[in-house]
Design a protein around this nucleic acid. Structure first.
Lengths: 229, 229
DNA sequence: TCGCTCTTGTTACGATCCTTAACGGTAGCG
DNA sequence: CGCTACCGTTAAGGATCGTAACAAGAGCGA
């Protein structure tokens, strides 16, 4: 043990991290090209000019590599959305909602197979990926902030549903004075955007002759309208 | 050639169909248990007491078997939703919307891995499965009928988006006098339900402490409200 | 009824992949 | 400067997909 890996990275540690990064990069290229299904240790090795077993020095299994890709993809999606929200921080709240939703969709359409890797491909009730939750929240928090600006103050009814929303809001660090309505719309907005994007990637709208961008615009309008009403 | 396979099924044809059905049934069991990923020709063969290559007499490849399962699952989902709509045909339109959405969710939660097989697992822009479209429309048509009852007549603006909606409505056999608003809400309702169910299956709401049923109820309310407004 | 033939199932095989094991070289590190 | 840990290689076991060659039987027509 020379040093904490984050402090003074030893040359060894740097090279090792570099190799890990290249593996993940090549793996992402292969996932983007053929889908996560087709990703094989052997193909990554061939792409890097390494023999397949060598990769086991860096990832204990194919599944572990995929898991690492999922974590990275989540982080990329989250920071992309958060950065879009940041970039529009001088705009009105409804415009920010639109920016966030569109950034989500754009990322998904740019990396459809990575997006599928995150939400669809996964085994049901997969492991607990706290990384994924954290990343999604990176986009969720600006969304909630925008919705909070739009939503007028109201007297909460205080039912169990509202309470669970407030608990969740507190857990992810939303503003303390946020209303259940804004929290509910945050979840539903996320779900709506995900539903649209998911169907669009699956090609459902192509065969219907519909435009995913227009459908997303309609949903954004709905969310903003619901928040303001 | 003895007879058209549908007319006077020869004994051979009957036995063959029986074998095909058993293969699909066992395969569904394995998919439900371990996910479509894990489905292997060998495991189906073992479950049936057959050697793996024997299955190639019935399906040319593992992919073809999966494709057949997808078609069957689509048909099952579609007829389940349609039957729920049928069963509520004496209720008010908003209640019918709720029944359709809840039937969709229930099917998905009952067969989560099959549901994943339909929308998530698929390669992007997979082949054209007209079967899937047909099956989804089986639930879409009653939904559109209900929304048409709720939506008040209005003067369509006639933009390109509305035109594409009308084209789609005509293509799937919706009532000729249906309004673009109802068509748009039909698509969005489908997308919203799919988004919610998809996230619920992925376990997203568990870690948030939220109840998928309540979220779906909120969305149903939204759709009905949008249709009536 | 009889015999042909198509169907169906088997085993054997090659290819690919995951993963572990055993081995050697080299470069970082004290 | 030498040691050691790390890295990569080849070899090998196990599983799977899919093909080929073969054997048996049952359906179907004459």
């Amino acid at each position: 043990m020379s040093s904490a890996s984050t402090d003074h990275p030893t040359r060894r540690e740097r090279l090792r991290q570099q190799t890990i990064d290249e593996i993940k990069q090549r793996a992402f290229e292969l996932v983007d090209a053929d889908g996560a299904h087709e990703l094989s240790i052997a193909s990554v090795g061939k792409a890097m000019g390494m023999s397949p077993p060598a990769l086991y020095r860096y990832f204990p299994s194919r599944e572990a590599l995929l898991e690492a890709l999922v974590v990275d993809a989540y982080a990329d999606l989250g920071s992309t959305v958060a950065s879009a929200a940041q970039k529009g921080s001088d705009q009105e709240a409804p415009a920010r909602v639109a920016l966030i939703a569109q950034a989500w969709r754009r990322w998904a359409l740019t990396h459809p197979r990575r997006y599928g890797m995150l939400f669809s491909d996964r085994s049901p009730a997969a492991q607990d990926p706290p990384e994924g939750v954290v990343a999604v929240n990176q986009g969720m928090l600006p969304l909630l902030a925008a919705l909070r600006e739009i939503a007028p103050p109201s007297s909460g009814t205080g039912g169990p549903f509202e309470e669970s929303l407030l608990r969740w809001g507190k857990a992810i660090g939303a503003p303390a004075d946020i209303m259940p309505r804004a929290l509910r719309l945050g979840v539903l907005c996320w779900s709506r955007v995900h539903g649209l994007v998911s169907l669009e990637i699956a090609g459902a709208f192509d065969s219907m002759g519909l435009d995913g961008e227009l459908l997303l615009a309609a949903e954004i309008e709905t969310v903003v309208g619901q928040a303001g009403a």
